[in-house]
Simulated assay, not measured.
Amino acid sequence: MEERLNKLRKSMEKSTFKELSFSEKMRKEIHKQINMPDESDDLLTVAILQLLLHEKTGYELKGLLRSRGFKKFEANEGSVYTMLHTLEQKRLIASCWNSEGTKFYQIIDKGRKYLRKQEKESSSGRIVIKGVLEE
């Protein structure tokens, strides 16, 4: 198994990451942002809105937030639904039920405007970097 992983890594270095390069300044900024423990409600809201550009369930959203490094919902997984309900009340997202009884969430026009505004105002770039890496 180890040999297969080494071959895969070498293959990826030759093809996937060959053209990818970062300046030292950008590399330091990315490391700083990745290791940044900040999980403010504003950052979390923007991350949720970015992820809801395409329809998702709360369960899918929770997993994607975890993959982005947000740990707020690990201790209380149900709190993601509280946040989604709040965003719905603010008219940033909308929800609908499918025929199997699953609830889906998606960003709406007011949420898109809010998202664009927050991404423009973001001085750290963390939100934008995470959004690009997720898609």
Rank of each mutant, 00 (worst) to 15 (best):
E77P: 02
F17R: 02
N35S: 07
I30W: 00
I108N: 08
A94I: 08
T82I: 11
L20V: 05
E74Y: 05
I30H: 01
I107Y: 06
V80S: 09
L53W: 06
G101P: 11
L44Q: 15
K28G: 00
H31K: 01
C96P: 01
E74V: 04
H85D: 11
F70V: 08
F104Y: 04
G69T: 09
I48E: 01
Y105H: 04
S23C: 05
G58V: 00
E119C: 13
R68P: 07
V46E: 15
S21W: 12
E100S: 15
L51P: 07
S99G: 09
A94F: 10
N98S: 13
K72E: 02
I30F: 02
I34Y: 06
E24L: 00
K32C: 03
L64V: 11
G63N: 11
A94N: 05
K110I: 01
D109A: 14
V46P: 14
S99E: 14
Y81L: 07
L20S: 04
Q50D: 04
A75F: 01
D38W: 08
L20I: 03
I30E: 01
E55A: 10
S99Q: 13
E119K: 08
R91Y: 09
G58Y: 02
L92H: 13
S99F: 07
S67A: 13
K117E: 05
E100K: 15
H85V: 03
Y59L: 14
I108L: 08
A75W: 01
G69Q: 13
K62G: 11
H54V: 06
Y105N: 02
P37K: 08
M36Q: 07
G58A: 11
A47Y: 10
A47W: 07
K117C: 04
S23Y: 04
T16M: 07
Y59S: 14
L52R: 10
L65T: 04
D38R: 07
E55F: 04
K103Q: 11
L92Q: 14
G101C: 13
Y105T: 00
S79C: 04
E100F: 10
R116D: 13
K117L: 06
D109P: 11
K110E: 12
L43A: 13
E77G: 00
K28T: 00
K25Y: 01
N35M: 05
E55N: 08
